[in-house]
Design a protein around this nucleic acid. Structure first.
Length: 350
DNA sequence: AAGCCGTGGCG
DNA sequence: TCGCCAAGGCT
C-alpha cells in the first residue's frame, strides 16, 4: 500500500499548527527525555509547569542524578504516577554511571533506562537523535485506527503488532522526530477521542472512519467492551399442558439454554407495542393479563432490560413448533439463564 | 498477560 | 453525575 500521501498531508499541517512548547526548542536528549516521562498519561497543560521546574532545579542529568529521592518526589508532587519520579532519578544515575553522563543514542540502550519503555525510547531516539523509530501512543492508535479504518482492538497483542507495523511503514525517514510528533499533535488537538475537529484535519478526505461514519467506534478497545442495551419481553403462557419454553439457538448469549418465548424489541415495550408483536405471532385474541416491572440483568457486555408478560393466547391458534409445554414439576429439569430461573421461582412462590 | 499506578478535564 | 480518557511502564 502506498502511503506517501500520508506524509505529504501530515508534515505541512504540523509545521502550520504545532504548538510552541519549550521541549521543542531543543535537541538536548535530557530535556526531551524529561518531557516524555512527564507526558506519559499526562496532558501537556498539566505537565508543562512541572517540566519548567525540573529543568530549572536540575539543569543537567548530572544534577538530577545527585538529587535526593525525597527532593525529586517533592518536585513531582501532584503529578501522579509517582514511580515515574523514582525511576527518573534512577535513570539519571544510570546515564551518569553506565553511560559516562551522556544519553545513549540507540534504541536498545534508551529502553534499558528505568522508566523508558517502547514508546519513550522511540520518542527520544527519533526526536533527539533522528532515529527512524515509530512511536505508538494513544494518539497514534486513534489517528491510525480512524484514518485507515482499523478495528483490531488496540489493547490486544495482535492490535499492538498491527499498529506498530503500520506506523513503521508510515514514518518519514527524513524527519522521523517531526513525523512522530506530528501524528501525536494531530491526535491531541484535532483527532480527539470525542468531538474530533475533522474540518481541520489534513486526512479528512481519505479518512475511512469519517467516510463510513465510524468515528465514534474507533479505535476499538477489547478490555472494556461497550455495554449493549437490549430489551427482552418474555411471554409467560400457562396452559393445561404447562408453561411454554423454547431453546435458544444461534450466535447469541445463552446458547443451548431454555427460556420463555421471547420477543426482543428495539425499545422498552409498551402494552400496545407488545400487542402488535403478538398479533404477528398469531392474529387476534391475545389477552395481556399482567406486566412485570423491568428486571435488569447485567452481563459483562450487555444490559438486558426485561419485562415478563403473562399472556393468554387466542382460543384456536398454531403453537410455534419450537415451543414446548412443560409441566411445573418438570421446569427445573431444563437449563435456564439465571434471569429466567429467578422469575420462575418468584412466579411459583409469589 | 492483566492489573496496577494518580490526577485533572471533559461531556 | 460519573465514566472515560490522557505523549505508558512495570510486575
Amino acid at each position: 500500500m502506498s502511503t506517501a500521501w500520508f506524509n505529504r498531508a501530515l508534515l505541512p499541517w504540523y509545521r502550520e499548527h504545532k504548538r510552541a512548547l519549550p521541549w521543542r526548542e531543543t535537541r538536548d536528549p535530557y530535556r526531551i527525555w524529561l518531557s516524555e516521562v512527564i507526558l506519559q498519561q499526562t496532558r501537556v497543560d498539566q505537565g508543562l509547569a512541572y517540566w519548567l521546574r525540573f529543568v530549572e532545579r536540575y539543569p543537567t542529568v548530572a544534577h538530577l542524578a545527585k538529587a535526593p529521592e525525597d527532593a525529586v518526589l517533592k518536585l513531582w508532587q501532584g503529578l501522579g504516577y509517582y514511580s515515574r519520579a523514582r525511576n527518573l532519578r534512577t535513570a539519571a544515575q544510570q546515564v551518569v554511571n553506565d553511560h559516562g553522563g551522556v544519553f545513549p543514542a540507540d534504541y536498545a540502550r534508551l529502553k534499558g533506562l528505568k522508566g523508558v519503555g517502547e514508546y519513550t525510547a522511540a520518542a527520544i531516539g527519533s526526536i533527539a537523535f533522528g532515529l527512524v523509530e515509530p512511536v505508538v501512543d494513544g494518539n497514534v492508535y486513534r489517528v491510525l485506527a480512524r484514518v485507515f479504518g482499523i478495528a483490531t482492538p488496540i489493547d490486544s497483542t495482535e492490535g499492538r503488532k498491527e499498529f506498530r507495523a503500520l506506523a513503521a511503514t508510515l514514518i518519514d525517514h527524513q524527519h522521523p522526530g517531526d513525523h512522530n510528533q506530528a501524528v501525536m499533535e494531530l491526535g491531541a488537538t484535532v483527532c480527539t477521542p470525542r468531538n474530533p475537529r475533522c474540518g481541520d484535519c489534513p486526512f479528512a478526505p481519505r479518512c475511512i472512519a469519517r467516510g463510513t461514519g465510524r468515528i465514534a467506534e474507533l479505535p476499538v478497545k477489547a478490555g472494556k467492551a461497550t455495554v449493549r442495551v437490549r430489551h427482552f419481553n418474555y411471554l409467560h403462557i400457562r396452559t393445561a399442558k404447562g408453561t411454554y419454553l423454547q431453546k435458544r439457538t444461534g450466535k447469541d448469549i445463552w446458547q443451548g439454554l431454555y427460556e420463555l418465548p421471547l420477543i426482543e424489541t428495539e425499545r422498552a415495550a409498551s402494552k400496545v407495542l407488545l400487542s402488535r408483536s403478538l398479533d404477528k405471532l398469531a392474529p387476534g385474541g391475545w389477552i395481556i393479563e399482567k406486566r412485570s416491572g423491568t428486571v435488569v440483568h447485567l452481563l459483562s457486555h450487555q444490559r438486558i432490560e426485561t419485562i415478563f408478560w403473562e399472556v393468554v393466547p387466542p382460543k384456536r391458534w398454531k403453537v410455534p413448533k419450537e415451543w414446548l409445554a412443560v409441566t411445573s414439576n418438570m421446569l427445573n429439569a431444563f437449563a435456564v439463564p439465571r434471569l429466567i430461573e429467578r422469575y420462575l421461582n418468584g412466579a411459583v412462590t409469589g
